[in-house]
């Protein structure tokens, strides 16, 4: 049924819509900028004022995934003809490439490996933090824990100083035990600082689930673990989704530790992208391409979980 609105409400409504549109423009412009630059040829990337209408190209992406050595002579005709489409994009852009006898003219860059590292580390650490956090929160929520408040405060206190403060001692410890530049090292690190966060958010959600649900299951002949699995987990899904998104974002975007604790094998994408700025003249459209691809997983992950998030973001206010 349509509600009858007063004149004041109509005006207020319009003001609200305008405010939302303005806020959206402010927030989305940088993202649009990155996304559009990622598809611009090098010559248009730095024009002032920025070019709005242009023919999109995949050249920045081709460059992003390749490593090239530059030479003064133009590329030979037969080499050009034999090259795959993405190499042609690079030649077309005026990049001149030396022919390396062993590996070919163009070799792959480190980006895809870094990206894979980011995915591995973020997904595994998110999974660990959320699952351990949920179990811990369940324990605190349902059982009498001696010194519960002190424990919870202790858990939270691990987040009270910026992680970078402990970076140097961590670095030394990691080097000693051989966790430096390993996936496992980063996974442990990210899990550890996401865990306190996961425990606190999940506790709010689990507290909201009436314990009568589980108790009915216990009386019906289920064990505590089965009751948790069949009753609590489905009810907590909203909270789990919200927590997972937050943990994933934090792990995915983490820069300082990734820079310090990894060098070759386990380096993630965040420290890699700026490292490209430093080598030679920065090619802004390539950097934008790297940043654009880097934005995607979080966007996709959030999009997939959006139905859960709509209810979950209100932090534990599930329907009674």
């Amino acid at each position: 049924m349509a509600e009858v609105k007063t004149k004041g409400e109509v005006v207020l409504n319009r003001v609200a819509i305008v405010a939302v549109v303005v806020a959206l423009i402010v927030m989305l412009t940088p993202i649009y900028w990155i996304a559009s630059t990622a598809f611009k040829p090098r010559s248009l990337a730095t024009t002032v004022p920025p070019t709005v209408m242009f023919e999109p190209t995949l050249t920045p992406f081709a460059k992003l995934f390749t490593k090239r050595s530059q030479l003064r002579q133009p590329v030979e005709e037969d080499v050009y003809e034999a090259a795959p489409w993405w190499e042609k994009l690079i030649y077309d852009d005026g990049e001149q490439v030396v022919k390396n006898r062993k590996t070919g003219a163009i070799t792959s860059s480190g980006y895809w490996d870094r990206y894979k590292n980011s995915l591995i580390v973020s997904i595994i650490s998110t999974f660990l933090a959320v699952s351990m956090g949920t179990l811990t929160a369940y324990g605190f929520s349902r059982f009498k824990v001696k010194g519960e408040q002190d424990w919870l405060f202790f858990i939270l206190s691990t987040r009270m100083l910026p992680p970078v403060v402990v970076a140097i001692p961590m670095f030394l410890m990691y080097r000693t035990v051989g966790l430096h530049d390993t996936h496992l090292g980063l996974i442990i690190l990210y899990t550890a600082f996401n865990l306190s966060f996961a425990v606190w958010i999940m506790k709010g959600f689990v507290d909201e689930i009436p314990r009568e649900y589980e108790e009915a299951a216990l009386v019906d002949g289920y064990t505590r673990l089965q009751a948790f699995w069949k009753i609590v987990l489905p009810e907590a899904l909203t909270g789990i989704a919200a927590t997972a998104v937050f943990c994933f974002i934090i792990a995915w975007n983490e820069y300082a530790f990734a820079l310090m604790m990894t060098s070759r094998n386990a380096q993630t994408a965040p420290p890699y992208i700026p490292s490209q700025v430093g080598s030679g003249l920065p090619d802004w459209s390539v950097i934008a391409a790297g940043a654009f691809l880097f934005l995607l997983p979080v966007a996709i992950f959030t999009f997939l979980l959006r139905n859960h998030l709509l209810r979950g973001m209100s932090f534990g206010a599930i329907r009674k």
């Binding site: 108790e215 216990l218 009386v219 019906d220 002949g221």
Partner: peptide, 11 residues
Amino acid sequence: TAAERDVALVL
């Protein structure tokens, strides 16, 4: 345990 007692509970 509650499961072993074979009682039913209506809340």
